[in-house]
Amino acid sequence: MTVTETAPTPGAGLRAAARIVAAPDGRGGTALPVLEGAGPFALRRPRSYGHEARVALVGAMSAPLGGDRLALTADVGAGAALCFTTTAATIALPGRTGAPATYDTRLTVGDGGSLRWLPEPLISARGSDLRQSTRADLAATACLVLREEQVLGRAGETTGRLTTRLTVRRAGRPLLDQELAYGPGAPGGWDGGAVLGGHRAAGQLVVVHPGFEGSPVAPRVLGPLAALAPLAGPGAVVSVVAPDALALRRLLDSALSQLNAVIRAF
């Protein structure tokens, strides 16, 4: 099957896709019948523990550059379990043409399936322009743990332009839908007191589990710039704004271990 195409058209940027399919291996574990990617997508299989298969994305080249069009797909079949990580931050960089890059991630999880999607942060470098979208379609009894982090500018650098939309649907109904837009050229006020308040890192942790149906988490303030909130459905979201990537990760990690404990108790 064709999973990767590279379009070397001058100035048009790179087109690249990667695809992961996870399915029960029939022995209580999870197999990866499809694990394909090229260009910037080099996928590795670290040793898996127990039921869950693991995939790590190794950054094989600088991407996305302006004009690039990247697509990443993961399908977790019914009863399968997958954990996805990246070995390094993804850095959006300016391209030659000034055209925006796109990076679209499509995730599906079947009934009884579990996906932990825990990439390293996305860093928006000065002069870059990236439109990112992540969409997760979950079956009614699927489980999802998804982290997204946006870091505006490398150390000491101003930010590029970043638009990112995160959509989570469960059993065909919308559970979470939010779009963030930062940086030069973004609609005004993104750095003001309603949106980022001068901070340079933001992150979301989404946890969906059928166990929340009967016992939703209680809203909890996790600090002056962080909150845990139940969604209008069997899920929870942690929203964090932080001065930098390190502080952001510290808060998200702490929230993640709290929520992991909740899930394990279901």
Partner: peptide
């Protein structure tokens, strides 16, 4: 549109 403002969401809970 699904425009979202992190600080508005976080501080609303506080």
């Amino acid at each position: 549109p699904a425009g979202s403002a992190p600080l508005l969401d976080i501080t609303a809970e506080q």
